[in-house]
Design a protein around this nucleic acid. Structure first.
Lengths: 203, 203
DNA sequence: ACAAAAATTAATCATTTGATTAAAAAATTT
DNA sequence: AAATTTTTTAATCAAATGATTAATTTTTGT
């Protein structure tokens, strides 16, 4: 109960943000009612607009946050010239799988955000473009000149992120996978680097 | 102009279905207004309810269709005991990449549908569960007893499908990828099988 | 303790939205 | 061609929804 006071003392503004994160992540922008958020936050509907002006502004705040945590995790790694390629691959796999195990709705939320508002997304990622000039791309190209580095970048993203996006479907086509999903993902922290090394040998 | 007559003669019911496919795929269920569909179909709003009773019924029709084309493509391959493992991998990669190049919105639509209505999705896929008892799973296990077959199943799905789901994001972090996306995907038809073979050697 | 500012609420508004109704138009049947 | 059925539309409804307003309560500063 050491943390109880802090929870109860959460400001209304923070309670609304917290509720907005939860509801927007679970249902997406269009399916979310501002009343749902107000109820989840335990505050009056008008208070939401008092603090955040509008549903859209509140959503952009949440989106900003989520995109930052999603890409903030990988961009510094890609651009680090000091670490080795193997290090980068290991770090990306390990961090992404850990983060997504704790935030299972994040992939679909980010994918939808990118598709529905590419302009806003581009604005938020200003300066983080030009993947192909990154240290990661250079190292991939050095290790395997036969395959375009963007292909291998797509691969590590796919292997780490997509399993979480397809989880609900996996649970239907194989209940066993549903039951052991977290174990499988934990295994992937070590497997993805091994698979990437194997793929890097392919011409 | 050989087909022109057929287009113009499209029945109202079919025009509505066609418009519903387009709008639902682009915007998702919640963000779609029945009026958008009516307008895109060039018919009166009331006619939509006359033929399809409700927005939800119309959506389920479209979802049924899309899920069928998405999974109908892979399930027979997985269960075919006659074809080799390499054949299966090649067929899946080739067909998925071709289909998704022609239907770029399909992955996100299917992922959202599975997450938002897993019950309905399960009902539609009745009899297609038990992936782990499929010929594909058995062949994976024979070829590489060290890695769980579900991991490799997840991998081929990820490598084929995820690139299309992340395309809008890729275009932002690397405009060059955006410009050459279709070429990259075409290359992947041959690369994915090579990568899968390489991964199958990993213990 | 009092005034001013900030936070919170109930009530309400204006639009949007899915759906229905009743009537008109078109097609089909007799 | 008259009657019947099917298709289509304009008008409208009721509920949902994002947002505002005006009043009340709470907090802060003096």
């Amino acid at each position: 109960m050491a943390k109880k006071k802090q929870q109860d003392t959460l400001s209304s503004e923070e309670k609304i943000k917290e509720a907005a994160r939860k509801v927007f992540m679970e249902k997406g922008y269009a399916a979310t009612r501002t009343r749902d958020i107000a109820e989840a936050a335990g505050i009056n509907l008008a208070l939401l607009n008092y603090y955040f002006r509008s549903k859209e502004k509140l959503f952009e705040l949440v989106m900003q946050e989520k995109l930052s945590s999603f890409f903030g995790l990988i961009l510094p790694v890609l651009q680090d010239p000091a670490s080795s390629l193997d290090d980068k691959i290991h770090t990306i796999a390990d961090r992404y799988i850990s983060m997504l195990a704790a935030n299972p709705d994040l992939p679909l939320f980010v994918l939808n955000a990118m598709r529905n508002a590419p302009k806003k997304f581009a604005a938020m990622l200003k300066g983080a473009d030009h993947l192909l000039q990154s240290a990661f791309a250079r190292q991939l190209k050095e290790r395997n000149p036969h395959v375009a580095p963007e292909q291998l970048f797509i691969n590590i993203m796919s292997l780490c992120i997509f399993p979480f996006a397809m989880r609900p479907g996996l649970e239907v086509i194989s209940p066993e996978i549903g039951a052991t999903f977290n174990v499988l993902m934990e295994e992937r922290k070590k497997l993805v680097p091994k698979w990437m090394r194997a793929m890097l040998k392919v011409k």
